[in-house]
Structure formats: structure tokens, C-alpha cells
């Protein structure tokens, strides 16, 4: 840093700054390698990554795999007026299995898992496997969006209030207190009666609540410990602007912790979504929690249609668990004391 600031101007600066960029890249590569090694030391994070990979595959393969069901599964009624190329993919929201089974009678829905429907069908005759796969895409987008938003805000707010302190700090900390005071789930339920809560809005709300809530406090205390380090003083003396110091020195140093919270954020966002869906308060065409909600509102109990509970329930658990595992794996990065001696 000092190097860059001491160069006045002109072409020289360009050359050096490029080499600086190169140095940075090398450093980054080095750090990445080190971190990866530490990360993989504990199998826990790897297991999580594998499961996430599996879910990514599931989400991507949905349209491909679902072509198998294609038009034969869709009733002629649903085909008409449909865009034909779209109809090639089984529609997990409107699709209805009317084809006769072995005994030439139409399947009675919800049908238990079979070769035709590996995860069974729901009370409206729709294939549960395709619903699970279709929802995986949405859950990914939703979870990552909300977690990114929350961590971005928390990191920024944490760094800023740690660096400036004083009134800004007091304001954000009281705000965090306020957010922490809210009983979380009742508040979301209350919000759902207030506005038509779809996935995007829910992600936004969760992101904002997370971004100004508890995570901010933790990230701020981490940033505080960085702020008192000697090199920050050095940067200040060298004339680095406030924002330069915040973005260049403080934030990069709290990023591992942010990344850790990113993973936990996905878990908690998807969990909240699933819970709201279960209570029937979320407005979405389909989601894992809604599969269970449909079963409940049509009156199919766990005893009568176990697959409508077990399969989405286990899916949610696995999905949330995988991000949590990666988070745990990152823990050793964040906290060197946890590493093996």
C-alpha cells in the first residue's frame, strides 16, 4: 500500500500497479490454497460441499429429466393453448397424472412412491420428485440472494460502525437491538398478513433483518479488533481515506467471517421459508414446505401419506444441513484456535 501511495503519477505508476495486481493475485492464490487445505482438513465441510453439489445437479437436471414425463403425463386439457416447447417439460404445478395404472384404472392420488413416480404424487396428482427438483432451483436462488444481501449489509454496517464509532455506531447498534427484540417468526407471520409475501419479498425482508441484526454485532466486534491493529494506524498516517481503509483493510480481514455467515444465512433463510410455507403463509406456486402444507390442508396425515412429509422434510434438512456443514468447515478458517495442533 505504501508503495502505491509513494508513486506520484505517470507511466511508472502503471507498470508498478500492474505488478502489484499480479502480486495481489499471487497472494490471493496462495491464500486460497492455504485456506482450501485448512478447509479440507476437516471432512465436515467437504461433505457439505458434496451435498450442495448434489442439489445443484438436481436443480440443473430438472428440465432435462422432466422431459421424460413430457406430454404423455399432461392431460390433453392442459396441453391446449400451451406453448408446445414448454409443454415438453413436465409442469410440476399444473401437471396431473391421469394415465391409467396397471389395472387400467387411473391412479388415485396421492399415490405412494412407485416406479412411475419415485417420490409419489401429491393430493392434486402432481409428481413430487419433479416438485422437489423444480423447487431446488428456487430455493437456491432464494437462499443465496437473501444470505448475500444480509451478509453484504452486515459486513458493511459492521465495518463502518466499528471504524467510525460514536453516533453512527450507537445508531446501528440500537437498530440491531431493535431487530433482535422482534420475535422472529411471529414477526414474519405478521408481515405475511401485511403484504402478499412472495419469495423475493421474503428474501428481501430476511436479508434486511439479518443485515441489521445480530450478525452486524458480531462482525462489528471482529472489525473492532482489526481497527486497533498497527497497520490500520499506519494506513491512516499514510493518508488513506476512510473508505479506502474500510474497503481495503478492514473488510478483507473480516471477509472469512462474513463468508461463514453467508453459509449460515442460507440455512436460516431456507428454514424460515420452509416454516412459513408449512404454515401456508407464503405465496409461491410450489416449494418444499408447501408440499407438506398441501398435504395437511387436504387432510393427508403422516400416517396416510408419509411420503408427502418425509421426502420434503428430509430434503429441507439435507439442504440446510449442507450449508451448515460448509459453514462449520469454514469455522476453522475463521477461528485459528480451532485448528488441529
Amino acid at each position: 500500500m505504501l508503495v502505491k501511495n509513494s508513486i506520484p503519477s505517470g507511466s511508472d505508476a502503471k507498470i508498478i500497479s500492474e505488478s502489484l495486481w499480479r502480486i495481489r493475485l499471487n497472494l490471493l492464490q496462495q491464500a486460497w490454497k492455504n485456506n482450501w487445505q485448512i478447509f479440507t482438513e476437516k471432512k465436515i465441510g467437504l461433505v457439505g460441499l458434496w451435498i450442495i453439489g448434489f442439489f445443484i445437479l438436481l436443480a440443473i437436471s430438472h428440465p432435462i429429466l422432466m422431459a421424460y414425463w413430457s406430454s404423455q403425463e399432461l392431460p390433453p386439457e392442459a396441453m391446449m393453448g400451451h406453448n408446445k416447447s414448454l409443454a415438453d417439460v413436465y409442469d410440476p404445478i399444473r401437471g396431473l397424472d391421469l394415465r391409467p395404472g396397471k389395472d387400467m384404472m387411473p391412479l388415485s392420488h396421492p399415490a405412494a412412491p412407485s416406479w412411475r413416480h419415485p417420490f409419489g404424487t401429491d393430493p392434486m396428482g402432481r409428481d413430487v420428485l419433479s416438485q422437489i427438483m423444480y423447487s431446488a432451483r428456487i430455493e437456491f436462488l432464494f437462499g443465496v440472494f437473501s444470505a448475500l444481501l444480509s451478509v453484504f449489509l452486515a459486513t458493511l454496517v459492521g465495518a463502518v460502525s466499528a471504524y467510525f464509532g460514536g453516533k453512527i455506531d450507537a445508531f446501528f447498534m440500537r437498530l440491531a437491538d431493535l431487530v433482535l427484540t422482534l420475535p422472529f417468526l411471529p414477526f414474519l407471520i405478521f408481515l405475511s398478513s401485511l403484504l402478499t409475501l412472495d419469495l423475493f419479498k421474503l428474501g428481501l425482508v430476511l436479508g434486511l433483518l439479518g443485515g441489521f441484526g445480530g450478525r452486524t454485532i458480531v462482525l462489528k466486534s471482529q472489525a473492532l479488533s482489526i481497527k486497533v491493529r498497527p497497520y490500520i494506524e499506519a494506513a491512516k498516517i499514510a493518508g488513506g481515506s476512510h473508505w479506502h481503509i474500510i474497503f481495503r483493510h478492514i473488510i478483507p480481514n473480516i471477509l472469512p467471517l462474513s463468508f461463514f455467515y453467508l453459509m449460515l444465512g442460507v440455512t436460516s433463510a431456507v428454514m424460515s421459508e420452509a416454516t412459513l410455507s408449512f404454515l401456508g403463509l407464503l405465496q409461491a406456486p410450489i416449494s418444499w414446505g408447501l408440499i407438506m402444507n398441501f398435504a395437511r390442508s387436504f387432510g393427508y396425515s403422516f400416517y396416510e401419506a408419509w411420503w408427502l412429509y418425509l421426502i420434503p422434510g428430509v430434503t429441507i434438512t439435507l439442504f440446510c444441513g449442507s450449508f451448515y456443514l460448509v459453514g462449520r468447515g469454514l469455522d476453522t478458517l475463521v477461528n485459528p484456535k480451532l485448528r488441529k495442533r
Binding site: M271, T275, F278, F302, G313, T317, Y324
Partner: peptide, 15 residues
Amino acid sequence: GITFWTMYYPLLAIV
């Protein structure tokens, strides 16, 4: 511990 910690609560309660 992690399994139960990340378990989908309604499912556990229902079961």
C-alpha cells in the same frame, strides 16, 4: 447434533 440442529422442525414434531 448437526442433523437434529438442521432438522426441519415440523417434520420432527409430526413424526
